[in-house]
Structure formats: C-alpha cells, structure tokens
Design a protein around this nucleic acid. Structure first.
Lengths: 183, 183
DNA sequence: CGGCGCATGTAACGGGTTACATGATTCC
DNA sequence: GGAATCATGTAACCCGTTACATGCGCCG
C-alpha cells in the first residue's frame, strides 16, 4: 500500500464520503500537507474496495450520476490503526518559492521586494482560509465527523502559514539590507 | 523546462559545483523545500549542458572519477532571471505526519502522546541543524558563494521547524483534552 | 583486504498529472 | 442554449525513485 491509500483511509475515517468529496477536501483543506486529483482517487478507492478495506453505498445525487459514499470497513480500520503507530516517512516538498528566493538578487531591488510582497499576500490569504475553517469547526457543537484530526490539520495549516509570513518579513529585511552593501 | 531544471540552475547560480555536490546539498540543506537524487540530477545537468545553459570544467578528485564542475552560462543566467520574475507554482507537499495526526485517536492516549513526542524530537533535531548551518554562514566573513539565497532558505527552514514545534505543543494539548471528553 | 565515501552514470518500474470522456441539473 | 457544478471514470504521458553498474582511494 502506498501513501495515497492511507490518506484516503484516513479521510474516510474522519468521515464517510465520496471520491468527489475527497477530491474537494484535498483541494481546499488538505493542500498544505497532501494533494491528489480525482483521477488518482477513483482508481485508488476502487482498489481499496476490492481489497475489502472500504465499502460504499449508493446514494442519489441532485446533479449528475449516483454518489458512491465510501466508508471504512473493520479491516480498513485495523490497517489504519496498525499504520498510524509507525514512524512517518519524511515529508516530500517541492516549493518553487524557495528556489526563487535563492536567486532573488538576480532581480532589481524593487522587483525582488514586490515578489516578496506578493508571496506575503498569498500566504496571508491562505492563513485566513485556514483560520476561517478552524473558526467554523469550533462553532459547530456536534460535528458529524471526527473533529480532532480535522482540528489538528487545520491548526498545522495556520502555524505553517504564520511561519511563512514571518519568513517574508525576514526576507524583506534581508533583501533591503543586502542591497545597501552590494557584494 | 521542468522544476528540477530551474532548481539546478539556481543551485549553480549560488555556487558552481558538481552533480554530487548538488545531491548532497539537496539532502542536507534543501530537504525542507526540494529533494532530488543523483539519478535525476546527472541526466538533468547533461541536458542543460546540451542546451548551453550550463557548462562544466573537469577537475581531479581525490577519490573516484574526475569531477565535472558545472557553472551557469550567460544564457543560463538569462533563463533564470526570466523565470524568477514569474509567480511560483503552488508548493507540492506530501506529509505523512499530518495523515497520522488525522487518525491519532485510533491509538490509546499514551501511544498518541508518544507519537507526538517523537515528532517533536525530529523537528527539534532538524531545527538545530538549520540553525547550526545559519550560524556557520554568519560566521563566514567572505563566503565563496552567493550568501543571500542560502541565508533565505536556511531561515525558512528555521521558521518552519519552529512552526512544527509549536504545532506539536498544540497537538499534545488537544489530544490530552480530547481524551478527557471522549465523544 | 573489506568497507565506506567519493563520483558518475543507466534502466526499469511505479505513480501521479494532464487530458479525454460522459452526462445530468441548474442558473443566466 | 451555453456555462458551471456535480459526479464518475479511463488512458497516455512524464518524471522521479529504486535499483543496477563501475571504479578509485582511504582507513582500519
């Protein structure tokens, strides 16, 4: 079993849902730690179903085809439990922003600063969406899903975006300073 | 040109070096924002060389085959400069730690807390290596490479690991609290 | 003399992205 | 009538990882 399989199991443990729902969750809430497109989700769910780790029930949809609402099975929960007790593989990250930072002084000072301001705005926007989702979660008395895991991931999103914003301030300062003393 | 190409160009802009050196840099200093193995670096460097964006000079090695010291060419620098002025693609991240956090309450309280303590220790160790590298950089009066970019990436490493540590504290607290009021 | 670090490369495999494909419903 | 959202799926391609391959020099 590869990484995506466990992410899907974890997603279904939090709440039973469709492949479509999972794709949306990746896109809007899980971005900061995992990504997957529907074209990889659907086959993976089908494979998990064949192996008995998840099951689905059909439900009508308002628009389009029937929804396959997937849920963890008992064996699926066992597999997850066993997996979660192990140490995680190191995180894989590809962040072009840092690569651009490496060569920021190829740009004239003003453009470099503008780049950083734009990054700051992006991080800020992202921070606000995570905070909004967290706020909404806290305002829900009895959520129809496992709240702890959701809370933990959103909290991580917030912490990380905050760190990114601090880095932007560091970077703005350093870039300005290094412009005064050109090497 | 794909992402790796620009990362290599950026790495060579910071300092001329061999594929082997770049692989080591990825492994020890760039982990937190990019990863690449030598098996993808060597072919990529060869392709960049064919396209005239980098060049190399041979130098003897103490052990093993001759070193190919790659350096940015003028066209390579132009390509980098043009690229850096554009907005970055969104970062790609796969962090199993978060997936495990999602299903942390599948574990008995003590094991969950232990998982988090282990994560904390890993983050802490990583933080210290970045801080050490930063310190070493600041202690070098006239480094033989472009210091700004290196400083920026190390600073990011520090900020992010600090955020991860804060998250661990958040998580420890939340997990303890949620154990008191089981759903 | 065996193992490790240096140093470069190639090849098979696997997995994910992009694109293709379908179709119903709602809103403008 | 066309666009957007919901909803599921398949297929080609790209790229990176894992593994294979080679060989020198140093250290114990």
């Amino acid at each position: 079993m590869k990484g995506l399989d466990y992410v899907l199991l974890a997603g279904l443990w939090v709440e039973s849902r469709t492949g479509y729902d999972l794709a949306q969750w990746f896109d809007k809430a899980a971005r900061h730690f995992w990504a997957a497109h529907h074209s990889s989700i659907y086959p993976a769910l089908a494979a998990l179903e064949r192996r008995g780790l998840v099951g689905y029930t059909l439900a009508p949809s308002q628009k389009g085809p029937q929804r396959k609402i997937y849920a963890l099975t008992s064996p699926g929960q066992d597999a997850l439990r066993e997996w979660v007790s192990q140490a995680p593989n190191p995180a894989e990250i590809r962040d072009e922003q840092m690569v651009r930072a490496m060569v920021l002084d190829l740009l004239p000072l003003e453009e470099a600063l503008q780049q950083l301001e734009e990054a700051k705005a992006r991080y800020h926007a992202q921070l606000e969406t995570y905070q909004a989702m967290l706020g909404q979660l806290e305002a829900t008395p009895d959520p129809p899903f496992r709240a702890l895991g959701v809370r933990l991931t959103l909290l991580r999103g917030v912490r990380v975006q905050q760190a990114y914003l601090l880095w932007c301030e560091d970077a703005l300062e350093l870039v300005k300073k290094s412009a005064l003393e050109p090497s």
